[in-house]
């Protein structure tokens, strides 16, 4: 079922990008996926590119769409799945820590399992974007309970609940209405806020200056998980954009043409002639 959802979402994204896909072709695509699986992305792309797009233009759109979509797509049920470097990195980090390895490549929220025993370089760099200074990793050990709602959620290691909370926030912020790519950052921020980012940030900065080591340790954990959540939300918004937005700008153009006075258009055309 999960697999079928992935492919039908992908087809939705294709249609949104103006590749015409019939029901028969959708069924063919499902058969093709059943045959080749999700594990070899290049193979999957080659296969689907013969089933779904049928003209040179459509193939071009398909290529871009596929790369975008499967860059972060949650490919459930195929743990060894991913050839994607970004995710590979996360996976490596995780397996190094003996977290629950399943779902690493599945791109869900592998870092939720992250017990934070070590920081990889990329991670440290990422943190620098948001934090003033690097502090020494406190390593494993005793840890206090999180207080804020989002903090609790992040520490609970429950992907399902986290995903649900993200979806609820998406619903509440009307992410479906996203239209142009410049809105992606805005929606990501709104969703984070709605999930309780301000409280979490306050908690993190309080914990930083706490005198107790277990509390500071919690602060570090929360920070890592917050950064990871940020990535997740960004991917979620990207996906919503592909599924719902006016990727080609066609609707926007039509909308504009409708709202522009016909006489003005004519004048413009006359001048062009």
């Amino acid at each position: 079922m999960g697999m079928d959802r992935t492919i039908s979402n992908f087809i939705r994204a294709l249609r949104n990008a103006e590749v015409r896909v019939s029901t028969a072709e959708t069924l063919d695509a499902i058969s093709a996926v059943e045959l080749v699986g999700y594990s070899d992305k290049a193979h999957l792309k080659r296969s689907l590119s013969m089933v779904l797009p049928k003209t040179a233009d459509e193939k071009e759109t398909f290529d871009a769409c596929f790369d975008n979509f499967f860059r972060f797509q949650d490919v459930r049920g195929d743990a060894s799945a991913d050839a994607n470097p970004e995710q590979g990195e996360q996976e490596g980090e995780e397996s190094g820590e003996g977290g629950d390895g399943e779902g690493g490549g599945a791109g869900g929220d592998p870092q939720m399992q992250n017990k934070g025993k070590k920081k990889s370089k990329s991670k440290a760099k990422l943190n620098n974007l948001y934090e003033e200074e690097e502090e020494a990793d406190l390593g494993p050990g005793e840890i206090t309970e999180a207080n804020s709602h989002l903090g609790k959620l992040l520490m609970s290691d429950s992907r399902v609940e986290l995903a649900q909370s993200m979806a609820e926030a998406g619903e509440a912020t009307n992410v479906r209405e996203i239209q142009i790519f410049t809105q992606k950052g805005l929606y990501a921020r709104r969703i984070m806020d709605h999930m309780g980012l301000p409280d979490l940030n306050r908690e993190i900065s309080d914990l930083r200056v706490d005198s107790r080591v277990p509390a500071r340790r919690l602060g570090q954990q929360l920070k890592q998980r917050r950064d990871f959540l940020r990535e997740q939300v960004r991917d979620y918004v990207e996906q919503q954009f592909m599924l719902n937005a006016d990727v080609s700008g066609k609707r926007l153009r039509e909308e504009m043409l409708r709202s522009v006075k016909l006489s003005n258009v004519e004048h413009l055309n006359f001048r062009l002639i």
Binding site: D28, S31, A32, L35, H43, R46, M50
Partner: peptide
Amino acid sequence: SDEIATAVFLAYQLRKPI
């Protein structure tokens, strides 16, 4: 190429014309 081989593979497995 990989594309051509994949096409024949799919055509045979899915019983579809190419």
